[in-house]
Design a protein around this nucleic acid. Sequence first.
DNA 1: TATTCCGATAGTGAC
DNA 2: GTCACTATCGGAATGAG
Lengths: 298, 298
Amino acid sequence: MTSSGIPENPNDAITASEMTSTTIASTQPIQKRPNAFTELMAPKKLKASEPSKMAHKLSTFPGRDGLGAYITHPESSPRVIQYNDSFVLIRDLYPKASIHLLLLPRDPVINQTHPLEAFNLYPEFLAEAKKMVKDDIIPLAAAELRRMYGKESASDREYQDALAERMISPASVAASPHAPTPVPTESSLSKGRDWAKEIRVGVHGHPSMSHLHIHILSREMHSQTMKHYKHYNSFNTPFFVELDDFPLKEGDPRLEPDKHMFIRSDFVCWRCGKRFPREKFKRLKEHVEDEFEVWKRE
Amino acid sequence: MTSSGIPENPNDAITASEMTSTTIASTQPIQKRPNAFTELMAPKKLKASEPSKMAHKLSTFPGRDGLGAYITHPESSPRVIQYNDSFVLIRDLYPKASIHLLLLPRDPVINQTHPLEAFNLYPEFLAEAKKMVKDDIIPLAAAELRRMYGKESASDREYQDALAERMISPASVAASPHAPTPVPTESSLSKGRDWAKEIRVGVHGHPSMSHLHIHILSREMHSQTMKHYKHYNSFNTPFFVELDDFPLKEGDPRLEPDKHMFIRSDFVCWRCGKRFPREKFKRLKEHVEDEFEVWKRE
DNA sequence: TATTCCGATAGTGAC
DNA sequence: GTCACTATCGGAATGAG
Ligand SMILES: Nc1ncnc2c1ncn2[C@@H]1O[C@H](COP(=O)(O)O)[C@@H](O)[C@H]1O
Ligand SMILES: Nc1ncnc2c1ncn2[C@@H]1O[C@H](COP(=O)(O)O)[C@@H](O)[C@H]1O
Ligand SMILES: [Zn+2]
Ligand SMILES: [Zn+2]
């Protein structure tokens, strides 16, 4: 925990390279964090030295309120990727896939509303969210996926070859290791793997975290923090409602996720449809890991 | 595992002092193990060196057949307290109380019979078992209990005082530390705590170990290996059938222990009757430990 | 109603 | 359908070359 109440990354320290290499082509007045690299490299001393009890309490969001700190103090956490007056985009602290981001609306009324309700009550909010996701966040997430697995992907070969050609050109030789991914030539842009279609966007029918949040995640479910059956089923049953499906029609079963017990379903492999009894999570997990190895090489 | 297939004691090594200090006044042709101390002190080398495949297989009793080795090779295990042609008396390997012995009939027909059935089918066997228990085993167990807790027991004060007087008398000064407990004077014999009434004898209505065995155990349930709800309820519900209650009358509910689900009952403290939900084993355990501290000081 | 290992299940508390 | 901690519950194997 920092003094702002936002937990630091307990997992792999991939944030530095990822964040400094993201190429954001925002059409909205979104400001990139101006000091992400600086903060990450700064010494992390000052544990419980300066912050007073009061300051600590005021800025702490325990348990189900843990997302609040990103909304009130987006400048204080290296987990924040970008933010404006309406949204904060963060990296999920316990990602359930290689890419797992959360888009948090900042409006205090909206962000205390149940997502299934909010998207019907506030159509402008829904439209704004859809636009930001499509124009900005999915491209960002897709680019990150490509950086992670592009070199291993057979169908991304054409893009990767063009990329390699760019990289060895004199112009980029001087580029630092933290330089953004070079934009490939116009001709190769439309080629290679369509990583965006591996990104899913939606909400949980019955969220646990109190602040409204939209999940943006790659679909392969490869993650060390994906370790309970609820983790899998919350993203691979109708418990997960895609943003594009909103507004839901009246009577849609997804409006009553608990009643339909989606979360307790048997497991279905997202890739091949193979089924597993719900008490065989470990077997599912092993199978999903196998699928991941094949998927990333597609 | 030794080469005879009998596991050695994985717990506290109390056997040596206990076994050498037991005072057995057997009325039956029971032979004490002649070499208990010798064997215990002997080096335990020779792991899997000599025994041939065949010999090893023949003497191995894994899982639910684990009591078989004591019956076929009573001379091979330090867990055996005494034996004759009809019975072997051993220390339970996973005792559920301070004292926990098992009496094993050696007859291959009897010892493969369900206990609830055997005591009705073979009245001579029942009579023989009752006599041995009463005349020999209960006194042995009671004496051992007294050695364990006598000094802390208020009601055993008179006996303990007489015992101390004996010990400091010139005649016993030369006694080795492994000498049997001195027999107190006739006058003090009838005084002190009645430890025998703290010893319970009976069988489980639905045993797991395949060879017929009679439990002899102190009633306080103080044991580190008493760690599951079945352990407690198997000795503190009608699942436990006292030897003196045999033969059971037709229609006795204890003849159908599974049907009545005794083993899944809520817990009832053996001492004060306090009840605990079955899923609160830890609380029961803590309470029983508290009771133990009071009980031994009675 | 054997033990042991492993894993699934369930309740709690977080300030 | 937060996580982390603890405890309970549940099935499977249990030997050995
Ligand atoms: N302190 C936190 N910071 C960032 N993400 C979090 C934090 N706590 C929980 N999460 C994530 O928030 C999401 C909440 O999911 P849900 O409420 O089920 O829609 C999960 O994916 C968690 O991994
Ligand atoms: N290998 C063994 N040697 C001695 N006692 C054992 C062994 N395995 C299990 N036991 C005990 O045997 C008893 C079997 O109880 P039950 O079959 O429920 O009547 C339990 O008290 C166990 O602790
Ligand atoms: Zn599959
Ligand atoms: Zn009590």
